[in-house]
Design a protein around this nucleic acid. Structure first.
Lengths: 191, 191
DNA sequence: TTCCCCTTGTAGCATCTGCTACATTCTTGT
DNA sequence: ACAAGAATGTAGCAGATGCTACAAGGGGAA
């Protein structure tokens, strides 16, 4: 492997940590370069352009998060809706996950703003999460599994918005209230 | 009223429309000034600084949205949880509201990034919505009304994220699936 | 050694950013 | 009519941004 490729990996590793800690607040080339411990000139030698730097770093983060989630809710095990929602909300409330969710919201907003390459990234991550949720969800037949999965993702992501706006405590309160929101619906008939 | 004050109003009116249509993508002083039909020099004559321009415009938008919401779910009327969620999701899915929700997500992300004056704005709007929801929600005694309200807001805002990431159709699908998520919980016992 | 290419540094460009200094016109009260 | 203040235009500053041109060090192949 060339020095260039080695450096790419090191940079991506450092930058994903930096993004997780600092969000998308300071993502100019010079600031990213400083965080990665290289010169801005070299960043653009290792990567095509700024978009590629961010893509690579965010991709790595998304991968880490999938691993982290899989550890919390192991594959091959399925849960009824109410329990799944509760577990997912708990996991997403843990501190490393909170950082990721905050960053994740910023990525989505950048996608809304039409900035490259965020639209494609957020699209991929949503669908990734969707299949992830779907495979762990025990639902009666006749229910729109994809729809319910998306709704759960909306719920969990929405909690991240609450977190950002009014802080962790209110987020926790809302998360606890989910028990009431979803409590008996596992037995309900599909529409 | 001085010319300056008149111009302030005109500018706020035009800019709120512009923000609703274009989001926070192009919000440099010069671009805002062009959208408002004045020179950037004059924008800073009418307003203290950029933050005040955005504050005033977003405040106006938030007011409009409250009015719009109140029309859809009139005051003095209360709904059981499942029905309220369904109605709220429907309203938020209508096109003017969708624009607002998209903008709203961008505001929250700016708050996450620590940009002024977004943190305070988003905080205010969340609590405004919370009391708005709370006053229209028919819940059994013993339930954390504030918590449930926040959870509902999370849900509705989360749908906006879905909208941004994967489009209106998937948002609609998730919204329809809410019926299943919340269907029987109105009768559940509080935790 | 000599050549070549991978790697790195220095310097800078063109543009945009929020904001300001200064000069000018226009309005208004006396 | 005239002075004072409100309103507007012109020009620009100082810093940041993404990116690039150019040259030079460094190490392996001939």
């Amino acid at each position: 492997m060339s020095i260039r490729d080695e450096q790419r990996e090191r940079v991506v590793e450092r930058l994903s940590a930096h993004l997780l800690a600092n969000g998308l607040a300071q993502v100019s080339l010079r600031q990213l370069a400083a965080a990665a411990g290289v010169s801005d000139r070299m960043l653009l030698y290792y990567f095509e352009d700024k978009a590629e730097v961010l893509s690579a770093s965010l991709e790595r983060l998304a991968g880490q998060m999938i691993v982290s989630l899989a550890r919390a809710l192991p594959d091959g095990q399925v849960f009824p809706l109410a329990e799944f929602v509760q577990r997912a909300a708990d996991v997403a409330g843990r501190s490393e996950m909170r950082s990721f969710m905050r960053l994740w919201v910023e990525v989505i907003a950048a996608a809304a703003r039409g900035e490259m390459p965020f639209a494609e990234i957020s699209n991929q991550i949503i669908f990734g999460f969707q299949t992830w949720v779907e495979s762990r969800l025990d639902l009666p037949d006749g229910v729109d599994r994809a729809g319910v999965s998306l709704a759960i993702i909306a719920l969990i992501d929405g909690l991240a918005l609450i977190d950002i706006c009014v802080g962790e405590q209110h987020r926790g309160r809302a998360a606890r209230a989910l028990a009431f929101l979803t409590s008996a619906s596992g037995n309900a008939k599909p529409a």
